[in-house]
């Protein structure tokens, strides 16, 4: 039996969670203070994922950069590919919170959306 200690990232509490595993099978999860902790720990030991946040270039806007995020989490080992696509992306103002900036980031099936409002500057 293998024992893994994780810090839950489901919320800022950061509970110390202990997972007991047998191969890829989770035997027990302890130390979490809510259900999120158990869900996170079970997932983190088998299939870790992250939300990626970054910025993209925006043209014709009242700000030079538009902050963005993946709408949901992507596999941890795909973060680099998602970043490469984000870095190639250039959008045109106006863009508003929630607008889709990239439909399918690096083939993960997850869209990248705007997290701020950038208004168009006329002229």
């Amino acid at each position: 039996m293998e024992k893994r200690e994780l810090t839950c990232i489901g919320c800022p509490m950061g509970c110390l969670v202990t997972v007991e595993m047998e191969g890829q099978e989770v035997l027990s999860v302890s130390g979490n203070t809510c259900k999120k902790g158990e869900i996170y720990a079970r997932k983190e030991v088998v299939d870790p994922t992250r939300i990626v946040t970054s910025t993209v270039r925006i043209e014709g806007g009242d700000k030079p950069r538009l902050s963005v995020k993946t709408k949901s989490d992507v596999p941890k080992n795909r973060i680099h590919d998602v970043m490469e696509e984000i870095n190639r992306c250039v959008v045109t103002a106006p863009v508003h919170i929630g607008d889709v900036v990239i439909e399918n980031a690096a083939g993960t099936g997850v869209p990248v959306i705007a997290t701020r409002n950038v208004e168009a500057v006329l002229g």
């Binding site: 800022p12 939300i51 902050s67 995020k69 997290t115």
Partner: peptide
């Protein structure tokens, strides 16, 4: 603060800084 993790207590969802401010 464009990273996420804001607002779990207030809005029960994870927002980025600009979204929380908005």
């Amino acid at each position: 603060c464009i990273h996420n993790g804001f607002g779990l207590h207030t809005f029960k969802e994870e927002l980025t800084g600009p979204e929380y401010a908005w």
